[in-house]
Amino acid sequence: MTTTTAPPADVAERRPPRTRTLARGLPMVPAVVLLLVFMAGPVVYSVYLAFTNEALRGEGAAVTSLVGLDNFATALADPAFWNSVLLTLVFTLISAVIGQNLLGMALALLMRQSTKVVRAVTGAVVIAAWILPEVVAGYLWVTFLAEEGSLNTLLTAIGLPAQDWLVSVPIWAVAFANIWRGTAFTMLIYTAALAGISPEIRESAEMDGAGPVRRFTTITLPLLRQSIATNLMLITLQTLSVFGLIWIMTAGGPADASQTLPLYMYEQAFSYGQLGYGTAIALMLLLIGALASLAYLRLLPKEDKQ
C-alpha cells in the first residue's frame, strides 16, 4: 500500500473559505468526539489520578486527595515493582524482539523459497494461532505445558524428565506462548515488505555473484529497515501490555514469578483497591513504551524521520 496523497480537490469553491473548511471537517465529528471522550479523556484523567490516593475502599475512597509524587515514590521503593519491571523487559525481549521478530523473519524468508502447498499450510497454521482469541490461546498453552500436558508426554516418550513448566519456568512459559501467538503478525508484515522489493535488484546482485547471505545483509536488510523498525515498535507495544494470556496461564504466579507490569497494575488497582497507585504504574508502563518507540525511531533511515 503506497501512501500517495490525493490530489487537491478544490472543485466546489462556492462558499467562503472558513465555512468551507468547517463544513469539510464535519464528517470527522463523530470519530473525534468518540476519541476525545473515551481515549483522550481517560489519558488526561490518568495523569490526575496517578497523583491522588483514589481507592475503591478505605481512606482514599471516602476523600480523595492529591498526594503529589507519593505513588511514584512508593513504586520505586517497592521490590515487587522492580520485579515486575524486570519481568516485563525479559518477557518483551524474549517473546517479541527475539522470538516473534526472528521467527517471523525466518518464516517470511523461507516461504519465498518453498513449494506452494507447504507455504499455504504453514501460513494457515501460524495464522490460526494468531487469530484464536487470547483466552483460548492461554488455555491451549496451559494444557501444553501442564504437568500432565502434551509437552511432558512427548518428553517422557523420548526419555527426558517431565516437569511442571508453568511452575518451574513461568516467565519462559508465557513468553513462548506469546511467540506462538504473535509470530503471524511479524510474518505478514515482513512477507508484504519482501514482496515490495523489486526482483531486478535481487537479480542484478545475483549476476554480480553475491551469495544468499551477502544478498540478505547488503540488499534485503537495508531495504527492510523501515519495516523492521515499524514492526519492532508495534510488537513491543503489544507485548508490553499483554494481560489476558498471562492472566489465564499463571495469573502472575507462582508467587509473583511471572507478574509483569500489567498484572502488577491490575493487582494493585483491583485486588488492593489502590486506583491511584495502579494508575501511576500504568503511566510508567506507558513511559517504557514511549522510550522503546523512540529507540526504534532512531533505527529509521534519516530521510524518513523529519
Binding site: 473515551f38 490518568s46 515498535m233 501490555s241 500489567p262 497494575m265 508502563l285
Partner: peptide, 16 residues
C-alpha cells in the same frame, strides 16, 4: 494513538 496500549488506560476508564 494506534500505539497506545489500551491495558494502560483501563484503570482510569474504569474509574470514569
Amino acid at each position: 494513538a494506534t500505539g497506545l496500549p489500551i491495558t494502560a488506560i483501563m484503570i482510569p476508564v474504569y474509574a470514569l
